[in-house]
Every structure is written in C-alpha cells, then in structure tokens.
Design a binder for these strands. Structure first.
Ligand code: MN
Ligand code: MN
Ligand code: ZN
Ligand code: ZN
Lengths: 141, 141
DNA sequence: AATATAAATGCAAGTACTTGCATTTATATT
DNA sequence: AATATAAATGCAAGTACTTGCATTTATATT
C-alpha cells in the first residue's frame, strides 16, 4: 500500500492527515523492513521532524488497530515491530528467533479450535505468533 | 502443586530455596486466583516480607520458564498474570475480556499447523492465547 | 471566509518492569 | 566444621512505553 491509498483509508475512518502522521507514514512506506517505536523515533529525529515519542507510539497503535499496519512481538519481549500491511486477509506471523525475519502465515488457529474448548464464549479473538529458526539461520549457530 | 513438591522441583533444577523465594511461593500457593508482579509485591509488602520488586519479577520469570507457574497476558497489555501450574501437559489459555477468568485449553495450534506454512523452520514454538466473553459475562454488558 | 468540533499533538509525569553490579546466601565439596 | 562456588538478592539506574491534560490543528458546517 502506498501513501495515497493509506490517506484515503484514513479519511474514510475520520482520521486526520496531520504533519506528524504523514512523516510517520512516509517513513513506514519507505522503510526496508519492520520498525519499532524507538527506531522510528530515531529515524524521524535524524530528519529533524520533531515528533514526540508519544505521538509515534499512539500512531503506531492506532494504525495497527485500523488495519493499516501489521504488528508483531518480534523478540517475544513485548516490544512490537510494525510494517505497512500488504496482505488484506486475516493472518498471523512466523518469526525467526535468530535473524528476526518475519513471514506471514494464512493459518489461523481460531478456525481449527474445536468449539468444545471455547463453549459458551462469544467474541473470540486470538493472539498467535510462531517462533523458530529459519533455513538460512540453521547451521550458522 | 503444594510448596513441598515445588521445593523438590527446585532442588532438582539446582534452584535454591531462599527466604524471598519461599515467601513468593507461599503467597502463590495460597492465592485464590492469578497474581501479577505488582499485586504480589503489594501482598508481600503488607506482610513486611521486605522483598525487592526486581526479585519478585525475576522469580516469576524463572518459575514460569521452569514450568512451575503458568503465565498469561490477561489484559493483552503485556502485563502478565501468574498462577501455580496445576496441569502438567502443554496447554494454552482462554481468557474472558470482561471478568478476567482464565481457563486452560489443551488445544495447541502448532500441532494443527500444516508444515507447508513453516517449511524449512526448526525449533518451532508458539505463543497462543484466546480472548472472548465468557457465558457468565454475556448480557451483563 | 469564519466558525465549530472532534481529532491529534506535545509536554510532563507515571507505570511496570529490566539490567548491571556489588554483596549475600544456600548448597556441595573437602 | 570450614571452604568454595554458583545462585540469588537488593539497590540504583535505565528502558520503553503510557496517560492526563492543556493546546493546536484538520476538516465539516455554516
Ligand atoms: Mn502481516
Ligand atoms: Mn495453565
Ligand atoms: Zn533466520
Ligand atoms: Zn467473564
């Protein structure tokens, strides 16, 4: 998704196109991989964009919950990595513990979960991430 | 699991039976439900056990990774809740977003995950939690 | 173009750990 | 019982957000 398309999405959702938000999205669309709040803050500081850290965090959160970004707990330490969402369909992520590579998986455990395990519950959602060691990283260590 | 059994487990793993650790485990075995680092710290402070917050956090982490405690991101905000593990088998948790009730599920998505989704990866592990609204909480809101 | 209003921002303070390091303590070995 | 050593602790400082609130700004309405 490019910046123009993202801005259209924002307008549809009554989210404003502000200077800080544009700088954040510009950085995200041009980033090579995944970014963290901290790495994005540092990148934008370098550009003298003068955006507060809390503004970055709030935007990353809002853009993720709006479906514009994907969010992954890459190092399973509660520090999230973000990237522009390229896949419209619901999906989860496979993460290499060694090199940090993140790949999408279309598998969602909720579909496979026998209803007997969750009987009586409504509004089910899940958090699901798979960690492993990718082919390129095997043998390296 | 009671304190005696836990201490046997600790000895097997070359983990020491210290006064702070005993106070933490005593509180955990007597707790009615799940505790957080903060709630445990406050409980122990009330008892004038004089245990540092970092000691509590380190113990909860160690005891979880040793399989003595279960650990759940109850409010999906990265703040973990802990309780003495009563189920030996590998399992995940179902959490009510409304009342916070936590129930075990024996379902593990890794077993259902088609290997084509993770081909080339080794040492697979997953993080999986299901959130919903339990029967008792439905209609209440 | 002026006005209204809901969204967004920046700042400061707060939260919940986390880490490094010197010191203490529990257990194994002599 | 004395000694060795690896594990654990407490303290202080650091990290990565998060929240409350006054102010600013983007967009819709007049
Ligand atoms: Mn994705
Ligand atoms: Mn459990
Ligand atoms: Zn890798
Ligand atoms: Zn409930």
């Amino acid at each position: 998704m490019d910046l123009k398309q993202i801005n259209q999405q924002l307008s549809k959702k009554n989210l404003k196109i502000t200077r800080p938000r544009q700088a954040i999205l510009e950085a995200l669309t041009h980033a090579s991989g995944w970014v963290t709040a901290k790495s994005l803050f540092e990148e934008l500081a370098k550009q003298q964009a003068n955006i507060d850290f809390s503004t970055i965090c709030r935007n990353l959160e809002l853009l993720s919950s709006s479906g514009i970004l994907c969010r992954v707990d890459r190092d399973s330490n509660g520090i999230f990595a973000y990237s522009v969402r390229e896949i419209e369909e619901h999906h989860h992520h496979l993460i290499c513990r060694s090199c940090g590579k993140i790949s999408p998986m279309d598998f969602c455990p909720l579909q496979e979960l026998n209803s007997s395990q969750t009987s009586g519950y409504s509004n089910l959602e899940c958090r699901f991430e798979v960690y492993g060691c990718c082919q390129a990283c095997q043998g390296k260590e």
